[in-house]
Amino acid sequence: MEFNIIKDDELDLLVNSLSDYGYDFTNYARASLKRRINRLLTIDRIPSFAELFYRVKNEEEYLTHVIEELTVNVTEMFRDPYVFKFLREKVLPVLATHPFIRIWHAGCATGEEVYSMAILLEEANLLHKSLIYATDINPSVIENIKRGIFSLGNLKQYSENYILSGGKKDFSAYYTAKYDFAKFDNRLKSKMVTATHNLVSDRSFNEFQLIFCRNVLIYFDKVLQDKVLTLFDESLEKLSFLVLGSKENLGFSKVANNFMQLDKEKIWRKIK
């Protein structure tokens, strides 16, 4: 068919080939994955699938680039501000009762939500006793979290989101603007631990009181969603919290009965 540059059998071929390198896209949602590949072909001006396939097989750097482009790294600070307002008002007071707080941002992309969380914790005077684990499949986006540098063009939106989330301070106090970039205060990242982690193939590595995984599951089919939700279930203490994206759900999953939804926002509490 002419409407898609990549054909279904070509997609299968590419997915099989990528799994040889440890990147398993088998259970990714097809429609979105296809779009990503077509987008890659357009952006990189690759005239044919054969050329894409050749470069993936023969150029290590290009393979890394393909993985980065196939996984969506779009995120923002305080996205869906009311989720963060709920965290401020209802979840952090519970976490505050713990001597030590462990939070996992799974599939955190460039880390905008990780910094949002650090700001929330600091304003609740909890950052000093917290550890925020930020993981993603892509090593390069993890590097961005360590730098704490974000595009200045987005800061107006982030600042509005911050205020809607119940933020009372002047948001610009958290960063220093230079040219087109905003460098966030080093103390925010002092409690962040970054690592590459592949939700498809890697196991649980700790127990947490709060897991963030927003707009990651939408790229997976239900089989893989269920597998990842089971991983989260195993990685959460009893009475801890799970935050998903605003149109994501766990109602269909095997672990659904272990969780209770708290609000119309997508926040669940592990009840058993």
Binding site: R35, I218, G245, K247
Partner: peptide, 19 residues
């Protein structure tokens, strides 16, 4: 839905994309 692209996996299932 606001802030998502709406895709169809097949004749029976939607999927969303926040790219």
């Amino acid at each position: 839905p606001p802030d998502y692209h709406l895709l169809l996996e097949n004749e029976h299932t939607f999927s969303l994309d926040a790219s």
